[in-house]
Design a protein around this nucleic acid. Structure first.
Length: 502
RNA sequence: CGCGGGGUAGAGCAGCCUGGCAGCUCGCCUGGCUCAUAACCAGGAGGUCGCCGGUUCAAAUCCGGCCCCCGCAACCA
């Protein structure tokens, strides 16, 4: 039995989840469920990143302790993922005690081996604000509030010997030992490393500056900065360093999903930390794009941030899952639009899968009293081959396309066979066709399960197959799994139209 | 010369890596069917694949140049 370990980034708890977070988590969920369906032993990890000066500041503004703030937002993420039916096996919080212990352990180890050394860090201090600034907060090198260049303060810090690992990392990326997908991202990283290389980076801040963080075990005046803390979740989530069996079974991760903005740090700093700790590097980094909303950048100031909870509550989790997986070509940027979501709901879900299921079960009730006929037969080309190969190539959107092609084939079959005529003229052929149709719905349920788990379960219920998910992958994709005599019932429509036609 | 993505039918997108009849969804037109959530099926109209040049028997696809749009600029998925 193969293992499959998949991770999403851990999300920063400065605000509640938005549709971009949801997208990453849904993609990971679809891949995780697909591998579970195949019978692989799966571990799916997500979580929240909770330390740092920003959290400290937001908490102060709200008159809260940082931990209190983090608890609240972290809970919102978990609730959102429950609502979206995300099947993660672990949820890491960087404030979990065993994570903090592990981070201290990692820091000590790296310090002992001199991968971490004392040096200095150049901080930018704006006298006007009386605050340190990030490079990203400056416009043309100036503080936006005071229109002046910040002073450069040199500050004691601990540095990580990232530069040492650059050649090895480049080698591994080139040889695809660390595989970066899609190809354009691989090329991007290779040229970045070849042209610019890597400098050592500061991994600590003075405690008076960033109090909300994990103290360095070898210097209580410093807390560790985001890198060591956040990245380690990918292995502390497996119980590292204590739980050796789980670590040995699942590490290295088969797929680490992320969006393009954090590729660089994952392909460099994170891999270097692993090397420094004597661990295997990641197998695959899969990079997806960003969303715009109705063609515009999603931002708080524009007020167009999409809340996945609202969408799920209005339309249903499966509708959002389907839409995101189908609409966005996996790996590239995409646009999120409610109008498109509603369009897809009507055409693909209501008219497509919803109508087909109702159509077939309606006929079964009408013509055979809801009993699966005694005849078994197959006519459709094997949709499973295309489906599986798309998944192997990390193209879940293509896999979905193949499933919808299958739906069209079944609709076509009904039109060609005209069961409503056969009902009057040829009972044997009618039964033959009905078996094919009902069995097709069983396959449809299985195909759709990784994407839309609730919908799949509804289909199985209507087909009288409560235990269908317990059937193994190879067994389940064979034709003829539906037993003659099974009692089927046309239940509630899967996706009632939002706008009934006149 | 900072990095990257994009410009393909009225709208939204795929195809480009690995050249070989330009494809999908929505919308529109015509026809069929009546089992189904007025759903389904067939046929059709609609595109100088941003512009210019090159390579090639053959270019949306490869190469060079230009124009326009959009992100990012080592913690916003």
């Amino acid at each position: 039995m193969a293992k499959f370990y998949i991770t999403t980034p851990i999300f920063y708890v400065n605000d509640k989840p938005h549709v971009g977070h949801a997208y990453t988590v849904i993609v990971a969920d679809v891949l995780a469920r697909y591998h579970r369906m195949r019978g692989d032993e799966v571990f799916y990890l997500t979580g929240t990143d909770e330390h740092g000066v920003k959290i400290q500041e937001i908490a102060e503004k709200q008159g809260k302790q940082p931990k209190e703030l983090a608890d609240g937002i972290s809970a919102k993420f978990r609730l959102a993922w429950d609502t979206l039916n995300i099947s993660n096996d672990g949820f890491m919080r960087t404030t979990d005690a065993h994570h903090e212990d592990a981070v201290r352990y990692a820091l000590s180890e790296m310090y002992k081996q001199e991968w971490i050394y004392k040096g200095s860090y150049e901080a930018l201090y704006c006298v006007g604000c009386e605050q340190y600034k990030m490079k990203s907060e400056l416009v043309e090198g100036k503080c936006t509030d005071h229109n002046r260049e910040p002073e450069v303060h040199s500050e004691e810090a601990y540095l990580f010997k990232l530069s040492h690992f650059a050649p090895e990392i480049l080698k591994r990326i080139k040889s695809e030992k660390i595989k970066i997908l899609p190809v354009t991202r691989h090329n991007e990283m290779v040229s970045f490393l070849e042209l610019e290389g890597l400098n050592d980076i500061a991994i600590s801040r003075r405690k008076e500056k960033v109090a909300w963080g994990i103290e360095l075990p070898f210097d209580p005046n410093h807390t560790t900065y985001v890198w060591v803390d956040a990245f380690l979740n990918y292995i502390t989530g497996l119980g590292w360093p204590k739980d050796k069996t789980r670590m040995e079974k699942f590490w290295p991760a088969n797929v680490q999903l992320m969006s393009k903005d954090i590729l660089r740090v994952h392909a460099t700093i994170w891999q270097a930390i692993l090397l420094a700790l004597g661990l295997e590097t990641s197998q695959t980094l899969f990079i997806h794009g960003f969303f715009t909303v109705d063609g515009q950048k999603m931002s708080k100031s524009l007020g167009n941030v999409v809340d996945p909870m609202e969408i799920a509550q209005t339309y249903g989790a499966d509708v959002l899952r389907y839409h995101l997986m189908r609409e966005i070509s996996f790996g590239s940027d995409g646009d999120f639009s409610l109008r498109r979501l509603e369009e897809r709901h009507e055409s693909d879900l209501a008219n497509g899968i919803g109508n087909l299921v109702a159509r077939v079960l309606g006929m079964a009730e009408k013509y055979t009293g809801g009993k699966v006929p005694e005849i078994t037969a197959s006519v459709f080309s094997n949709v499973w081959d295309a489906y599986g190969s798309h998944f192997e190539k990390f193209q879940p959107d293509q896999a979905l396309s193949a499933v919808w092609g299958f739906i069209t084939d079944v609709d076509k079959f009904i039109d060609t066979e005209q069961p409503w005529v056969l009902a009057k003229t040829d009972t044997e052929r009618l039964n033959f066709d009905l078996y094919i149709l009902l069995e097709s719905l069983r396959h449809l349920g299985r195909l759709v399960w990784p994407f839309m788990p609730s919908t799949a379960e509804k289909i199985f219920t209507q087909l009288g197959l409560p235990d269908e998910l317990k059937v193994g992958y190879d067994e389940g994709k064979k034709w003829g799994g539906l037993q003659p005599g099974t009692r089927v019932t046309k239940g509630e429509g899967l996706f009632p139209r939002l706008i009934p036609n006149p």
